[in-house]
């Protein structure tokens, strides 16, 4: 399966009477990359995806796929697979008919359609459910049908709008692995939209964090998490402490796992644990300093150390090089 690079060139989209949905976005997605558009609802990530798919036309800017300008190409000629959050399976058609739809539109010979549908269903482990209607499938199975339907046309680009959003947590985690594995095997360029930062961190090669129609930062999950560039990114991804800085100086931030809990008297801040969130492998503590400020500290449970109790007095220790300097 061939894959294509995607390039967005100063793309903007405004919906009539409303604020700018996508504001001057430029983006390069490499061929074969697993790329996430991450942000809160209304940040423009879905509109960006829909412009790549062709459901929305940008007001300005150009979109290139595989080196060709596709800004004015109609949706059905773009050769892209799309997986919707609601799956959008045709309720009046069987699993086989759903998956065969794109091949039928391409007017391929019937034997080839049958062969490719069978292979696609085997790929997503749905063999045996060919004659079912979407309503007779579980959420996870519907998700796989949607995936098979989009992939069977061998698209150069696979677009996914919150593909796992409707699944429960356990299944979502399993599908994360499967989707990533499938993408690597096929080598298809995959762009997916999500508001779930954990999902974006877990699955993507690179992430674009969006806020209010603009791209805040693009980078690998490790970069985004470890070196957030702006206050928004730092705050949106995981937990973070914003440190006090001199007036006029750049803001600084510190991940909770970089903060060590020490006996009272040690460290930079003395205070008491206000709440303890037990997370299984670690516990996230909210510590109220004696000067009134709140700080988060994460402690992993090495051995069989029990979580600390709220009320316990502690000192907080960190080193300056663990703090990240933000641009704004």
């Amino acid at each position: 399966m061939s894959s294509a690079a995607i390039r967005l060139e100063r793309v903007s989209k405004r919906f009539d009477g409303r604020v700018v949905a996508v504001d001057d976005v430029s983006l390069e997605i490499a061929a074969g990359e697993f790329f996430a558009l991450l942000g809160p609802s209304g940040c423009g990530k879905t509109t960006t995806l829909r412009m790549i798919a062709g459901f929305e036309r940008p007001d300005s800017g150009r979109i290139h796929v595989g080196g060709a300008d596709i800004t004015d190409v109609a949706v059905h000629r773009r050769d892209m697979g799309m997986v919707f959050q609601s799956y959008a399976l045709f309720p009046h058609r069987t699993v086989t008919e759903n998956v065969a739809f794109g091949l039928r539109m391409r007017e391929l010979p019937k034997p080839e359609i049958a062969r490719r549908v069978e292979a696609a269903l085997a790929q997503v482990a749905l063999t045996g459910l060919e004659a079912r209607r979407p309503a007779q499938l579980s959420g996870g199975q519907q998700q796989r049908v949607a995936l098979a339907r989009a992939l069977v046309i061998e698209p150069r680009v696979l677009l996914c709008d919150e593909p796992l959003g409707a699944l429960d947590r356990k299944l979502r985690q399993q599908m994360q692995f499967e989707l990533k594995e499938l993408q690597r095997r096929l080598g298809v360029t995959l762009v997916f939209v999500t508001h779930d930062q954990e999902e974006a961190l877990a699955m993507s090669d690179r992430i674009a964090v969006m806020d209010r129609g603009r791209i805040e930062q693009v980078g690998t999950p490790a970069e985004i998490y470890g070196r957030p560039r702006t206050r928004f990114v730092a705050d949106f991804i995981g937990e973070i402490n914003f440190l006090e800085s001199e007036p006029g100086a750049a803001p600084r931030a510190l991940r909770p796992e970089r903060v060590r809990l020490a006996p009272p008297g040690e460290g930079r801040v003395a205070g008491a644990i206000e709440t303890a969130n037990f997370l299984g492998g670690s516990t996230l503590y909210r510590v109220r300093g004696d000067d009134g400020r709140l700080l988060l500290a994460r402690e992993t449970h090495a051995g069989d150390r029990a979580p600390r109790d709220p009320g316990q007095r502690v000192g907080l220790v960190w080193s300056d090089e663990d703090a990240v300097t933000l641009e704004r």
Binding site: F55, H76, R77, M82, A88, F101, G102, R106, R149, I153
Partner: peptide, 25 residues
């Protein structure tokens, strides 16, 4: 659901074909 029509479009169906294959049935 309009997304059914969009899904058909993304799979290569023209507007007329989408109407005949999805909306009308």
């Amino acid at each position: 659901d309009e997304r059914l029509e969009q899904a058909a479009r993304s799979l290569g169906a023209s507007r007329a074909r989408t109407f005949l294959e999805v909306t009308l049935p």
